[in-house]
């Protein structure tokens, strides 16, 4: 449902920011060991977030339609 889309986007952005902070912390910790974490991983996680939000949108849309039909 389009009414919930801003909410989904807000949740996605907050989750991504928290995970990005975790990734930044992990990169700093591993720098001492000369280990490298590729920025592509962060990009992959961003794509994963978009996919999850998309799935949530589709499932909620189906559920809400079903509920409305049931109540009628």
């Amino acid at each position: 449902m389009r009414q919930f889309v801003p909410l989904y986007i807000a949740i996605g952005i907050v989750a991504l920011l928290l995970v990005a902070a975790l990734q930044w912390w992990a990169s700093k910790q591993l720098a001492g060991y000369d280990m490298v974490i590729s920025p592509w991983i962060a990009a992959g996680t961003g794509i994963a977030a978009v996919i999850v939000i998309g799935l949530v949108y589709i499932v909620n849309r189906i559920n809400i339609r079903k509920n409305i039909n049931a109540i009628s």
Partner: peptide, 17 residues
């Protein structure tokens, strides 16, 4: 969302390392 993203991130990080 956070748990799922952490799981994906941690898995990718470990593979990368």
């Amino acid at each position: 969302m956070i748990l799922l993203l952490i799981a994906i991130q941690a898995h990718s990080d470990f593979d990368q390392l």
